[in-house]
Amino acid sequence: MATGGRRGAAAAPLLVAVAALLLGAAGHLYPGEVCPGMDIRNNLTRLHELENCSVIEGHLQILLMFKTRPEDFRDLSFPKLIMITDYLLLFRVYGLESLKDLFPNLTVIRGSRLFFNYALVIFEMVHLKELGLYNLMNITRGSVRIEKNNELCYLATIDWSRILDSVEDNYIVLNKDDNEECGDICPGTAKGKTNCPATVINGQFVERCWTHSHCQKVCPTICKSHGCTAEGLCCHSECLGNCSQPDDPTKCVACRNFYLDGRCVETCPPPYYHFQDWRCVNFSFCQDLHHKCKNSRRQGCHQYVIHNNKCIPECPSGYTMNSSNLLCTPCLGPCPKVCHLLEGEKTIDSVTSAQELRGCTVINGSLIINIRGGNNLAAELEANLGLIEEISGYLKIRRSYALVSLSFFRKLRLIRGETLEIGNYSFYALDNQNLRQLWDWSKHNLTITQGKLFFHYNPKLCLSEIHKMEEVSGTKGRQERNDIALKTNGDQASCENELLKFSYIRTSFDKI
Results as ranks from 00 to 15, higher is better:
R141A: 05
N43D: 14
N322M: 01
N309K: 11
L102G: 04
G333Y: 08
T221A: 15
L76E: 02
P104N: 00
C243G: 00
N325R: 11
V55I: 15
F103S: 00
Q276M: 10
I109V: 09
H127V: 03
K224A: 13
F66T: 02
L88S: 02
T189M: 02
L128Q: 06
L240D: 03
G262F: 13
C315T: 01
I84T: 00
C293V: 08
C243V: 00
C255E: 00
Q204D: 15
C234G: 01
E314V: 10
S296Y: 06
G183N: 11
Q216N: 00
N322F: 13
A190R: 06
R92A: 02
N322E: 00
H127R: 06
H226I: 08
A198Q: 04
G58N: 00
I40S: 15
A156N: 15
A119E: 00
K129Y: 06
L47V: 01
C328W: 00
P246L: 07
L96F: 02
L174R: 11
G333A: 15
Y134K: 01
L102Y: 01
V121M: 02
R41P: 04
A119W: 00
V265T: 12
S225I: 12
D75P: 06
A119Q: 00
Q299E: 04
K292W: 14
N282V: 05
P197T: 08
N43E: 05
H302L: 06
E51V: 13
D277P: 05
L164V: 14
A119H: 00
T199R: 03
L152S: 02
R279V: 12
D165I: 07
T250F: 11
E207V: 09
G37L: 05
G333L: 02
L81C: 01
L96I: 10
F115R: 03
M65T: 07
C335A: 09
L60W: 00
G241R: 03
Q276K: 10
C280S: 00
F285D: 14
F115T: 07
A254D: 03
N179P: 03
K217M: 12
M38N: 09
E33V: 06
E180M: 08
I146G: 00
Y272M: 05
R162S: 07
C328K: 00
R298G: 08
F258E: 03
A230E: 12
C264R: 00
I40V: 15
E33M: 11
F258C: 10
D39T: 02
E33W: 11
L136H: 00
G58R: 00
L106G: 00
T229Q: 13
Q204V: 09
I158K: 01
H274F: 14
V218R: 08
G333T: 07
L240G: 11
H127Y: 14
G132V: 01
N135L: 03
T194C: 14
D178Q: 07
M38S: 03
C286S: 02
H236Y: 05
H59Y: 14
R298Q: 03
T45P: 15
Q299F: 05
S112F: 13
T211N: 03
D178E: 09
E33D: 04
L120R: 01
Q287L: 14
R110Y: 05
T140H: 05
Q204R: 08
E147R: 01
E57N: 07
R208K: 07
S317D: 05
T329L: 11
V93R: 00
L155N: 01
A119S: 08
W278I: 01
N195E: 13
K176A: 15
L174G: 11
F73G: 05
C223Y: 01
Y30T: 06
S213W: 03
K294N: 02
F78V: 04
I82N: 09
L164T: 13
F116H: 03
L133Y: 09
L155A: 04
H127A: 12
R263T: 12
G300W: 01
S213C: 03
V126G: 04
F78Q: 03
